[in-house]
Simulated scan of single mutants.
Amino acid sequence: MSLPYIPSLRRLFFLLVSSIIIFGPISSPSTIKAKATDKIPKATWLWHTKLIETQTEELLSFSASEGIRFIYLQISTKVDIPHYKNFISKANALGIQVHALNGAADWALRANRSQLTSFIDWIDKYQLAAAEEERFTGIHVDIEPHLLPEWRIDTNNVIKQWQSNVMYLVEESTKLELPIAGDLPFWLDNYTASDSEMSLSSWMISKYDSVTLMSYRNSASAILDLAKQELEEAGNLCKHIYTGVETKYSSEGDHVSFYEEGYDYMNEQLLYLDQLGRNYPSFAGIAIHDLVGMMDLANRNKP
């Protein structure tokens, strides 16, 4: 059947046909979004270590579908070693690296150095007993001394101790031949490092191999606004930053997490955040807190 001779309609038809020939079939926005989101370099935390005893397949299947490349797995002595070996080997088979995770607010204090030593010793013994495909490929620490009462009483003293313990961790990770990364709040550029003219954020970035910034907000532009100072500092230091996002409920307000907005909206914002972040050479990707929270958010999205 031939088209009636309506000039505007014919022009529209031939433009559409030409576009398909040149660019290929037209994809729906949801398809474009899914393909683009899968390409975003992502990392996530797994604090609920006991889950690897019974839900390894579920955890890793979901992670692979979300494009997760790194899982920060908390070390728990209550979980037997074979479960770690099984989880890590299956993760590696999917192209997912697993980093040993631990930390606490009081890890910033010299009096608790023994806790850091125990963590490092556990990793060392584990690595020696594990096959190559069962080994951790990095170390990740979460030390937040601003949660301590000592931070309010004598901030400078806590900062000095924190720096000392970070240096210790960096030296020990070097002996293990493993890169080490740390979680940092976004506001450390407001503080000065001890015995240095550097901002505390620059000092920390300079010591760790990479940093995950807890730039928790519920929009890409707000996240980048919190992270841009550290992204610039990391660029000057030739280091890398992961911008962090939150999926769990936050008592600090709805603006902190994607918990209220949901899974689809979060993925739209992650795509936009990735596009904005790529303007900075130091941008390494997005870290989603955390794996269980992300799975819960996705399940809430199901009809």
Rank of each mutant, 00 (worst) to 15 (best):
I159M: 04
M198D: 15
N157C: 14
E132I: 13
M214I: 03
W203R: 02
Y168F: 15
V166S: 09
P149S: 11
I180G: 04
I120F: 02
I159L: 12
A130H: 00
G138P: 02
L176T: 09
A220W: 08
N190F: 05
I123F: 07
I153K: 15
G138Q: 06
W151N: 08
N156T: 13
L200I: 10
R135Y: 06
E132Q: 13
L169H: 00
E172M: 09
P179Y: 06
I205R: 07
Q127C: 01
K207N: 12
S196P: 04
N190Q: 12
M167Q: 15
Q163P: 10
F136D: 06
M167W: 13
A129L: 14
S201V: 12
I123D: 03
N156R: 14
L148R: 06
Y191K: 09
N165S: 04
E144C: 08
S215M: 00
E171F: 11
G182T: 01
A220F: 09
W122P: 00
W203Q: 02
H140Q: 15
T117W: 09
T192P: 00
E150Q: 13
F136R: 01
T212P: 02
S201W: 06
V141A: 07
W151Y: 08
S210V: 09
R217W: 06
V170H: 09
S206T: 11
Q127S: 13
Q161I: 11
G138A: 07
K160F: 09
A222H: 05
S173I: 06
E197V: 13
L176E: 09
H146W: 14
E133Y: 03
S202V: 04
I143Q: 07
P145C: 05
M198C: 11
S201C: 08
S173W: 05
M167V: 11
L178S: 04
W151Q: 07
Y191P: 01
S173N: 11
L147Y: 12
W151I: 12
H140K: 08
R217M: 01
E150H: 07
W187N: 01
L184M: 07
L176S: 01
V170G: 00
Y191G: 08
I143H: 04
I205C: 04
G182S: 10
E144N: 10
I120H: 04
E177R: 15
H146E: 14
E134S: 04
L200Q: 07
W187E: 03
P179S: 07
D209G: 03
F136I: 12
I153Q: 15
